[in-house]
Amino acid sequence: MTKEPLRFHFDICGENFTSAGEASVSIKRILRQIGISPDIIRRVSIAMYECEINMVIHANGGTADVDVYTDKIILTLKDEGPGIPDLELAMQEGYSTAPDSIRSLGFGAGMGLPNMKKYTDVMDIKTEVGKGTTVTMTVFL
């Protein structure tokens, strides 16, 4: 029987870019407290941070759920934003639709999705134009 995961839920506020990343900082702290190894913590928190930033830039926020199992951590970030019209293109390093205002803050270089894929073991994106996007990422412990 699989042990029930530890579940953590966060609402990602999409109203201002200043607070983007707060949930990722929180999850980093929580994972440290429950004794997850530093390497795993870094991968999970970077992937979530990138995704959180994306949700704030493109989708006016959303929700993040982190489920910690004994053998894996599953991140599920869900928004009701505009969706991603061309996912293959969005996955390319350097491709970005972020506005200049975001670029001037050091983001929007088109590295977000590739980074999320790089730092996690499995990444799945379900997206529908006009409906929203759900990104599920798994890191094995």
Binding site: G21, S24, V25, S45, I46, I53, G106
Partner: peptide
């Protein structure tokens, strides 16, 4: 503030 969060990450 994202500079600090990035550094924390």
């Amino acid at each position: 503030p994202q500079v600090v969060r990035t550094a924390v990450m």
